[in-house]
Write a protein that binds this DNA or RNA. Sequence first.
DNA 1: TTATCTCCTACTAAATTAGTCGGTATTTTG
DNA 2: CAAAATACCGACTAATTTAGTAGGAGATAA
Lengths: 134, 134
Amino acid sequence: MKFSTRSTYGLKAMIHLAQNWQKGSIPLSAIANNENISLGYLERIFAVLKKAKLVKSEKGASGGYALSRSPEDIDVYSIINTLEGEASSFHCVEKGDKVYCGKKCECSVEPALLKVARAISAALKDIKLSDLIG
Amino acid sequence: MKFSTRSTYGLKAMIHLAQNWQKGSIPLSAIANNENISLGYLERIFAVLKKAKLVKSEKGASGGYALSRSPEDIDVYSIINTLEGEASSFHCVEKGDKVYCGKKCECSVEPALLKVARAISAALKDIKLSDLIG
DNA sequence: TTATCTCCTACTAAATTAGTCGGTATTTTG
DNA sequence: CAAAATACCGACTAATTTAGTAGGAGATAA
Ligand code: FES
Ligand code: FES
């Protein structure tokens, strides 16, 4: 429900890249200025995004970052999920069809948590970057 | 995407109450035991839920908590939103139709963040407590 | 009158978040 | 070639949030 600035920044930056999809690589400094984000912090965010193959990079002057695929092929779920770390929505971790708890308990409500987590995932998977540019 | 244990605990407890909806008030100690949650922590969670009028309480021995309305009339959005504090999904705050930022900037992507936030809200509003028991 | 309960405030420990700093490697550009 | 711009990397820190504890006071039922 509440996203960290990391997700917010990451998503904003990705939208920025989507808006400039044809223009080739864009340096982070441009995004940082434009969206008012700390450059150093944004760099680390992009390290994660790159590792997840959501963006590709070019080094050197006139280098920068670009989306690795077209905006239609990147959904918000991938971005947020990558940046928030684990694929878990709740404290109890979803893996496949089961929910596991760090506390190793077997409580009665796993299917319910799973339902909620799935609804959110589905909603986010449905939104592509291309839907967010205008 | 990732919820705190507060939301997890709160939601689990609310589901627990929904499952015992006919049985009248249920003491927190029962829920705490059953769901393996720290009692003191759960008490504070319920203080918030009560303030939001999602539950009602009865003091004294054989007292406890119960849902304030029937499980069909309580959606997951209300619960999570209440527990996560602000109604904002992102670092930038949604109010009415606009998104405001703590940093007072006017960046270009507010409508996009708003779309994502709305999609999640809609998905959660669609899930009632009654959908999660059974 | 005792055992359960809600309810309240304050404190603390642990974890996470958000950010800084200083530097290295690589590539374009002048 | 030299300089500027860029990605990339790791360590460090400050601030905030989270999760949980402790110690009660007040209400109610048995
Ligand atoms: S699965 Fe996590 S508390 Fe039961
Ligand atoms: S509205 Fe928050 S950074 Fe622009």
